[in-house]
Amino acid sequence: MPATGTRTTSRTTLRRGIVAAAALPLLIGALASCGYGSEAKKDEPKAADAADAGKKLSASEVRIGYFPNLTHATALVGLQEGLIEKELNGTKIKPQSFNAGPSEIEALNGGSLDIGFIGPSPSINGYVKSKGSNLRIISGSASGGVKLVVNPDKIKTLDDLKG
């Protein structure tokens, strides 16, 4: 009569092998998704070079909304370090902080903000409610979901953000 310990050990080994084989593609997929995007080609101009060659915006100031928390670090650092103003070639920045997405969307829809750093849900909700007439979602400004929402009368395409 064969020992049952050998049969149990071989079943356990087989199960572990199947689980490992099933988990391997998931692990590879998870590691592959850890990147932050593609790198720019060497012959493409850098954004800083474009800003240096640009002029001030036609508006005397740009009103920017953001949340004063870690999830909006792009806006916090950009405003604190003067990076956004530098990219706008010295156009005056008028920052305004908000505690929630709906109030920032109201400010954008009401015309008291030009640009808003805001999460994906309020951005999409505001865009859908206005049927795309009041807001434009231009781009993600941080990995994970922060969007740049602008006044469509002033910024109609990505080219309007150059400089």
Rank of each mutant, 00 (worst) to 15 (best):
M1P: 14
M1N: 12
A3T: 03
T8H: 09
T13A: 13
A20G: 02
A20V: 00
A21N: 01
A21K: 00
A21M: 01
P25R: 07
L27R: 01
L31R: 13
A32N: 15
A32M: 11
S33P: 05
G37L: 02
S38C: 04
S38Y: 00
K42Q: 11
K42A: 15
K42F: 04
E44H: 11
A48G: 09
A51L: 08
D52I: 00
L57D: 15
A59T: 06
A59E: 10
E61D: 07
I64W: 00
Y66T: 03
F67Y: 15
L70S: 13
E85C: 01
E87A: 14
L88D: 03
G90P: 01
K92I: 05
I93E: 11
N99T: 14
A100L: 07
P102A: 03
E104Q: 15
E104W: 00
E106W: 04
N109Y: 03
D114I: 03
I115V: 13
I118C: 04
S123G: 13
I124Y: 11
S130L: 01
K131S: 10
S133L: 05
I137Y: 03
S139P: 10
S139G: 10
G144P: 05
V146L: 15
K147V: 03
K147M: 15
L148I: 07
L148W: 06
L148C: 07
D153N: 15
I155C: 08
I155G: 09
K156G: 10
L158A: 09
D159M: 04
L161G: 08
G163S: 10
G163I: 05
